[in-house]
Design a protein around this nucleic acid. Sequence first.
DNA 1: TTGAAAGCGCTAACAT
DNA 2: ATGTTAGCGCTTTCAA
Lengths: 347, 347
Amino acid sequence: MLKPKTTLKEIAKILGVSKSTVSKALNNSHEISDVTKDKIQKFAKEHNYKANKLAVNLKTGTTKTIGVILPSIQNFFFAQVLKGIEDVATADDYNIITSFSNESLSKEINSMELLANGMVDGFILAIAEETQIKQNFDHFSEAIQDGKPLVMFDRITDTIDCDKVCVNDIEATYKATKHLLNLKCKNIAVVSTIDHLSVGKLRIEGYKKAINEMFAKINKDLLVIGTTSNIDFKIANLLKDKTVDAILALDEEAVLAAYKASKFREYNLPKDLAIIGYASEKMAANLTPSLTTLNQHGELIGKAAVNLLLNKLKNNTNTSFEHKPIDTTLVERDSTKGFVSKFNTST
Amino acid sequence: MLKPKTTLKEIAKILGVSKSTVSKALNNSHEISDVTKDKIQKFAKEHNYKANKLAVNLKTGTTKTIGVILPSIQNFFFAQVLKGIEDVATADDYNIITSFSNESLSKEINSMELLANGMVDGFILAIAEETQIKQNFDHFSEAIQDGKPLVMFDRITDTIDCDKVCVNDIEATYKATKHLLNLKCKNIAVVSTIDHLSVGKLRIEGYKKAINEMFAKINKDLLVIGTTSNIDFKIANLLKDKTVDAILALDEEAVLAAYKASKFREYNLPKDLAIIGYASEKMAANLTPSLTTLNQHGELIGKAAVNLLLNKLKNNTNTSFEHKPIDTTLVERDSTKGFVSKFNTST
DNA sequence: TTGAAAGCGCTAACAT
DNA sequence: ATGTTAGCGCTTTCAA
């Protein structure tokens, strides 16, 4: 528009030197004398010269930029992961470009294509919901084929051979369910709106594993799987006859629905019902009663993911893929603290 | 790494035509016969050819990409704005690259430099906290100088001449305070952890304006300005002698602190204290009691911002700058619904 | 309808 | 220590 950007060529002409001298001087090459370097660097600074990134990247074939593709921006967990990614990447002088798939396959493909052709050196991503449902992973293999290494986290697939960082989801809900069992809960329901996601399925498995260790069989009525629009109704139904004494909620939607329904059914929280769930720490702390959560340590996951990617980027002879698990922690709050089930016959 | 990307040149050689023919064919130029076009396009598809974005952008000098720089990812409002931006931009075939300043001046400068030199055609941003405190806006004027139009939203500054989209903050808190006044509240406190931000100051002004219309002077004790670390304590102190019958909380931190402190001081909510505040709709709906909020319509703000930017991008003779206000809506919930102040002497 | 050639802004191997 | 040159992958005049 206004003033066209200063270029190497212009500086060279004005200063009466060659383009390459300017380039080398600005990159602090030892080939250039200090006098010329000083002169050129000073001039560049004064004229606010900035190298054109496109040209540099095109020439060098590397961008020192990582593309991060997240399914959703309205999600505390992903935000935490991004924070972890940024911290490590920035420390290593890598830049981050973030793009959101909004849980849509076509937007995910789009984002990858936008970034794959020159903009980034590699990807870190969690698979979009629609992609997981349709099981269409071609864009991932293409990226890898094109020499862009890829690290998946949280929402992963076995179909693609690449580095992966994930939560040990089975272990997490197993631990949570055990915790409720230790509280002498007899009828532990599990509620979820994410059963179409890989993580959703794994979390159910952990629940089942713990229940199976205690009881002869799983009571199907205690498995409440719904969608954002019908979960409120389904949980209200579950709580109708007040036999349920604990709920394990597998996602934030389900958590909020559980609170709402228990209020609606006039459960007295936390006395009548213990709840453990997945939610942001902020939300968990401010619910009434505050919620005992499974903290996934998003930042750690992000950091682990970048480290795997940087490793591949810097050392591309490395062809083996890692599958790195990050443990989940149970953070106890009022929704379970000191809970005693009314069905507890022992004490 | 593995298979180097297919290039125009290769296709040309294999198909025995010239580079320019391939280029034109792939861009569906009318100069090329249908037969050759078909042949080339088919071949390109089969070999999964994707034009190198860097090269195209370098050559054409335009990227059809907008850089969005947000102060924080852990913020519902910004997430909403981003959603609005994406919707409109995508519909117009523009891509979005998002970067986060984490409220830091240096990261903001960094992000702009990363993107300014070739990666994007223009910017949409909200100014980082540190930038607003230090009042260092040189990177913004530089971007504009370099021909990258810029649209600011929410966190803006008068110092820079550019398109702006903002909430009418004074009007919003004026309206909220009036609402509390109409509920016959006598001692309305305002609590904030964002007084160093432009929006924080404006919100206080709206409060003062409404109070001044009703009372002779502002009671300084009712102005509680703090930081994330001390706001809990300050509000607890404010509520010590139970004279306060309403709180206007200017940000989500302040909202949560107000709830915590009122619980600590054994206020019976919502009977003893009316609260209006800024918070995500999700958080507001799930607090106990649910919170009456000032909804800023982030998506609308995002949409307005892109429209202004696209306008400049497509029509660069347009040199006048717009300052577009978006109204805030009061969404009434339990924290004020049916509230009657104990100081109400009329009924 | 097709192709040759220049050039976007930069880097780097190879002279000088 | 400095300059010449080629070329990254593409688009786009201009000529054929």
